[in-house]
Design a protein around this nucleic acid. Structure first.
Lengths: 266, 266
DNA sequence: CTGACTATCCCCCTTTAGGGGGAATGGCGC
DNA sequence: GCGCCATTCCCCCTAAAGGGGGATAGTCAG
């Protein structure tokens, strides 16, 4: 497996200032957007201005099955391709998506073979996309711990040659676009469900932290130097506070509430 | 809890081209760097050029305990602060770090209270940093699924006022710097240990998702319309893939790897 | 002082998870 | 075709989690 060849540019010298202004305008507009439709319109405009045919700002999840409130999908790919994509559940192993888990930087699709080792199935995906008229493109990763992975891509129709000059600009545009869309989706999701903030006691936190690391009640008791029943009691009352019945839910609620960090449990 | 106020700028109009060239130069140099020492030197130079006193390009892990090969720590914070930071294991719940899990964009430290709800302990951290002479700063998140979270920060001495004009430039500089450092560290670590990305099968994902919502094996079986033993089997093999023994750890690994979203489980 | 909360410990019980074995089917890659 | 993997199902057993019921002692605010 090779490494992502970090490349960067804002366009040739005489164009760079102009490109920069394009980015500035996009970011300002994205920050002002109050609906996902507005963000999508901005994506459409900017992709045209930069000479792209397709855009895709998506969370890598099953958009048919999940609660759509918290996951975003803004794209203008050919419908048959989208159908096939969802049908085969490609979102979890599509080579472009997998490559986006290997870097924080924007990358050209034609560089993907240098970034990850492609399985035959993944090579088929690239060919399959080509058949649907999708050529080369650029993808900006958008991964947040504890959230579904996502990305913002811009692509060309088959046969067109990718201009890499704007990859620096696209890095910024993609990042800001995704954040804007994500915030709007989260806002919409938040309005439905209100979650009151609950804090755990220090000792409860100790137990929850260790439970989150996969320790059993007995192990936690041994580590903390108290009886197993006491640990059980702490975890019982912690679950009661969050109003959940299972250990798994307790840990996830504590992580979501910021009481413990996901990285502290791994 | 408010939302991150995405802001962007390359500096005032007459300075923007100059700032852009600074970014371009940094990125070019970062791409050419062949050792972590070179990257650190670049960080030192660029932080000076942009008027910062401190830089910190770090993975959010225990740098004393873990295998240092794959985790990066380049920083010039005051030694007492670093000592205290590691001593109290702040890397896992430091408010700046936690805030960096909520966005992909560079953010000012003074905006953190608008991004996440600070616990009392986290407020103490900010005061404690101030006591050590560390004032405001800007952090660029660097989170990759399946890897330790990280970030690249630039900070000022206490009392100085943060100039937000360069936050767009810093977004790029931080991202490229981190990727460069990460690649170099990985290259060095690749010889010893290989940490491959692990994917779950579609059916395993179905089971893990429901298990993460607190369902029992029997309930999952009923929902999916298969036998309980099959569900157990899927969860067994899923746990085996991640090399973990407990259900809780399985869910957390899947969440951290971006296979399922935390918000889909609550 | 009293009531609320915390932390500690003890008992009972049922359900669930985890650790061992197996086996049959179908798809895909080499 | 052969091997690997995903998916489905079956058996065994022990360990752990969850749902009840208690008790004692300390802190802290009203």
């Amino acid at each position: 497996m090779g490494q992502a060849l970090a490349s960067f540019s804002f366009g040739v010298q005489e164009e760079s200032l102009q490109t920069f202004r394009l980015v500035q305008q996009f970011v300002d507009a994205a920050n002002r957007a109050s609906t996902l439709q507005q963000v999508e319109l901005l994506l459409e405009q900017i992709s045209l201005e930069m000479g792209f045919d397709y855009y895709a700002l998506i969370h890598h999840v099953d958009h048919r099955a999940r609660n759509k409130a918290s996951s975003v999908r803004l794209e203008n790919y050919p419908k048959p391709w989208v159908e096939k994509f969802l049908e085969k559940k490609m979102y979890s192993w599509d080579p472009i998506h997998v490559a986006s888990y290997a870097t924080n930087l924007a990358f050209a699709w034609s560089d993907v073979p240098d970034m990850i080792t492609l399985t035959k199935r993944q090579q088929d995906v690239l060919r399959s996309a080509l058949d649907e008229g999708i050529g080369d493109g650029i993808t900006v990763p958008a991964n947040l711990p504890g959230e579904a992975n996502g990305s913002c891509s811009f692509a060309l129709r088959r046969g067109k040659t990718l201009r890499r000059e704007y990859i620096g600009a696209i890095q910024l545009i993609g990042s800001f676009a995704f954040q804007s869309a994500r915030n709007l989706a989260l806002e919409a999701a938040r309005s439905t469900a209100t979650t009151g903030r609950v804090d755990l006691s220090p000792r409860q936190l100790d137990c929850v932290l260790l439970a989150g690391r996969g320790k059993s009640d007995w192990e936690i008791a041994t580590i903390l130097g108290i009886k197993e029943d006491t640990v059980t009691q702490h975890l019982d009352s912690a679950r009661e506070r969050y109003g959940v019945a299972k250990r798994v839910q307790l840990i996830l609620r504590a992580v979501h509430a910021g009481q413990i960090a996901l990285t502290d449990l791994l």
